[in-house]
Design a protein around this nucleic acid. Structure first.
Lengths: 322, 322
DNA sequence: CCATTTTATGTCAACGTTTACCGTTTTGAC
DNA sequence: GTCAAAACGGTAAACGTTGACATAAAATGG
């Protein structure tokens, strides 16, 4: 009987023990569907993300899973590509998945249509590093502008003046935020951003390589490149090498994300650590706090996590001939 | 009424349409818990793995998810570390997760205790690249011995004779299988394996680096290194560089797995492509075929996938001074 | 020793579907 | 127009739990 197994009051110790022993002997496991039915909960948390780098996905997952460990909640992964062009489809997918709550990574967390849908169905959600409508839902963020500012300031303070920029996918607002941070740093340093040295990538290695080649083959070869993620930064290093340039002697390269490749690349990348795992943990934490709270809690709806600049061997002052 | 929504027979078109319209208007979604309760299925597939490289995890997931797309089944991720030392705990976790079936990646798929537990509870499972008890459960495998043979033959045919070997975690049977393949290739080439050139790693970069340094600092510096995964191979390249050695001029390095780092590393790694995604797809495919079959199907219980040697720039004939 | 409270145990409705069953209506054939 | 068969729609049981309620037993107080 459920009272014995669930340690409810008004059950004698003897009976409780006997029931538990019998349950153990029979390898009895309560039927979760029946429990879900009556509790009106599935104890499933969804995690949705879009085809980013493997290390990002794993960090995200591990962060969320770290919080879910020893909880009843289980994590369902729901990757979904091209959200921007079909947000309703993802909405339907999420609503049909029978979730108690969902963690939204970029760029899904920035789709107003999607947020409308899941709000209408009262599906609780937490947004990880969103960049628009920062007042909707639970928000766990990193200050992208500040991060972009930090890394650009690093490059400028080394003495670089001709700085190439490889943007990420423009549909990710992180790309815009980081660029804004670059701008502020350049303004403060009294340096103008040369638009001919700004190329648009999509966070992938292949496109990053192409853009880097264009920058380095151009008339005004930069002495440093700011890439908006590590994969593209590694691609920039490869492009430089293919042109006979040494990093960091002939070209400094800075990335973003502190992904695994940034450590295993040669030279190791100067990059910005985005505390993805911590943010995912926090998002899961706030989400289940919300789910377990009977009343709408008065916890703050937004929380910012701090970035950290990791200066490694891929950046150095420009050579005198630069 | 359920008949209308589920396209059952004996329902007039008019009624069916009206019901569906009303359902759409109300954003009605059937309660999955109730459906699960009556169907005696949760429509949840578990995936369990142990702290391997991010790219492996993502390939695994994407493969399984690729098959689950457009199915009712959802994927629950259940990473679990140190299975070898506490298989019963993972068993309990899996059995309590309310799964319809589970995909077991190494090394969980090689834990007899775990298999015993989930078999006793009649939880269907598929094993991805298991290395022992190959007759238990659904098996999707790669022939590790053949793969090890192929890569070792490649190195030997380039002319290398002093070959260092960095083993993976010995508890992963993949490590043993690959080594066996090396042995066969060495035997066929009439070359003896020098035990002093065999080091034991654990598939991680850091330990791989240490082992590579020991090998290269030793009295008999090898002209080639066979690493049992890409992370350790990249570490070996880094170790060589730190000693002033060029790859592949002074040292050839071959990896295993065709992970992302093997492509972004410099020089790009010669490696063995393990069709992880395809195998995960296949495992999910066979598992749901089993779940959806009323009777025990007579499909083959084991299926081998082919490896592929990818020769890239990290291997070359030994220099004449070697 | 009875009345009263406390504690332990048994019973049953409810959760939201599906499916089997049964009664009613429509259809088609003679 | 009658009859059988097919099509349709309504009702209720069942899935495996939980939790409220009722009943029974034990403990307590007068």
């Amino acid at each position: 009987m459920s009272r014995a197994l669930n340690d409810a009051p008004h059950v004698s110790e003897a009976v409780r023990r006997k029931v538990k022993e019998a349950a153990a002997a029979l390898d009895y496991h309560p039927n979760l569907a029946a429990q879900s039915l009556i509790a009106r909960r599935s104890y499933l948390i969804g995690l949705t993300y879009e085809r980013p780098s493997p290390s990002y996905v794993v960090e995200l997952q591990n962060g969320a899973l770290g919080r879910l460990e020893n909880e009843r909640y289980r994590l369902v992964v729901l990757p979904f590509n091209h959200v921007a062009s079909r947000p309703e489809e993802l909405g339907k997918l999420l609503l049909r998945a029978g979730l108690d709550g969902v963690l939204l990574a970029p760029p899904a967390c920035d789709q107003p249509v999607l947020l409308d849908m899941i709000e209408r169905q009262r599906l609780p959600y937490a947004r990880i590093t969103p960049h628009s409508d920062l007042d909707r839902g639970l928000v766990v963020a990193m200050d992208e502008v500040a991060a972009g500012h930090t890394v650009a300031t690093h490059i400028l303070s080394l003495g670089h003046r001709r700085v190439g920029i490889i943007l990420g996918d423009p549909s990710h607002a992180a790309s815009r935020g980081r660029l804004e941070g670059y701008r502020q740093a350049f303004d403060e340093a009294g340096v103008a951003i040369d638009d001919s040295l700004v190329g648009t990538g999509d966070f992938t290695y292949d496109v990053g390589y192409r853009v880097a080649r264009e920058l380095l083959d151009g008339p005004l070869r930069p002495t440093a490149i700011l890439a908006q993620n590590d994969d593209m930064a590694v691609a920039a290093i490869a492009a430089a090498r293919d042109l006979g340039l040494s990093v960091p002697q002939d070209l400094s390269v800075a990335g973003f994300d502190n992904s695994e490749v940034s450590r295993t690349a040669w030279p190791p990348l100067t990059t910005v650590h985005q505390p993805v795992r911590e943010m995912a943990w926090d998002a899961a934490n706030r989400l289940i706090a919300m789910l377990d709270a009977d009343t709408d809690s008065d916890a703050p709806r937004r929380r910012d996590h701090l970035h950290e600049l990791l200066v490694r061997a891929s950046t150095a002052p420009p050579s005198s001939t630069g």
